[in-house]
Amino acid sequence: MREPAWRRTGKTPDYRFSLANERTFLAWVRTALALLAGAVALDQLAPEIAPTAIRVVLCVVLAIIGAVLAIVSYRRWAHQEQAMRSDAELPHSWLMLGMTVVVSVAAIVFAVLILVRP
């Protein structure tokens, strides 16, 4: 695999912007890893939170969101750098809204599960 073609277009961005973009990528990657760790921790440490089938489905959903987030964070990083290289406006991303919804829904679901637990 070579460097993608867009890496040779436009001008190299200021290093501060490049590194900020890299740190944002890493922050999303850690969010993805936190979802994976959370899924396993929930399954292992809170087995009574829901019947096994429901619990496993919820944890698998969290882990799959983590996998998708890892891919989306790379794409976001690449799109941001492409925009910086061509001096374009930074692209709008639904990632923040999407993850806000995911985290809120997860919080509500688990709050309800804890409340209704016998």
Partner: peptide, 13 residues
């Protein structure tokens, strides 16, 4: 990380 997620899903199942 996608591979780690795959290992996580298999372990959960």
């Amino acid at each position: 990380i996608v591979a780690l997620a795959a290992a996580t899903v298999v372990a959960l199942v």
